[in-house]
Nucleic acid binder design. Sequence first.
DNA 1: ACTCGCCTGTCG
DNA 2: CGACAGGCGAGT
Length: 291
Amino acid sequence: MLDPLGKAHGATLLSSRTVPELPEVETVRRSLSRALCGRRVVGVEARDVRLRDGIDPAHWPPLIGLELEAVDRRGKYLVARFGPLAAVLHLGMSGRLLVVPSAAPPAPHTHLTVRFAGEVELRFVDPRRFGSATVYPIDALPRVSCLAGLGPDALCEDAGRAVAVAAARSRAPIRNMLLDQRILAGLGNIYATEALARAGIRPTRPGRSLGATRLARLGGAIAEVLGDALAAGGTTLDDGGFQDAEGNAGYFAVELLVYGREGRPCKACGTTIRRVVVAGRSAFYCPRCQR
DNA sequence: ACTCGCCTGTCG
DNA sequence: CGACAGGCGAGT
């Protein structure tokens, strides 16, 4: 969870540089809880309303005077509860949540600032603006569509079973199914790809073609890869050009088996890792280890 | 069940 | 300067 930029500005960085998936969001949740729970909101500022889902500036001032009680997570969504109101946050692809001293200079692309008692601010920074931040009355939460449509959380005990049940009746490539938040909430491309690598399953495999044994192995692999990443505080690996620099300055919290490793040798058998585009997105696999 | 559009930073 | 990265919802 250390970031050179964040540290340089004296900020507590609450999200990684990587596209945030479940382990990163959960790490953010824990950090937010630790830093801000029990504090009262004393001011808000919505500077940019052009997020994909939009930030409605009128929705934020009612938080003033309320105390942050808890931060929950559902899949990749965070739900921050302030008594009668709740903020639903999604980091999208490039969203970060920063807890900084009020005096700290604002980072570029700071769309939302929530000022707390004690001279600290929560800042939502999102260059690509795929994230979202919306306030709802607490009793409206069950009807918020983005939350209501989520499948079971990928960290819960029946995650593997949920995947197995869905896979049994679908011809869709298993990688796509793992990305479908209605089936299982929390996986993104990196962890879906890595779970399949650990399970020895090719990403293009139709769900229906997988037997019970392999599906059970997949369920175990999902739990394993998420657990490893979470234990490391989330992956802080850059998804861009720094992939080649494995072990670079300790920012690689998780040993990726195949993700982003096209053309390089499989760590298990040495076979060249392949990249295929499935439903418009890259999938990586070892053609020998993954069938 | 698929494709597209939304965005910007980074790399070839 | 174009390609690509990617979550997610709308559209087909």
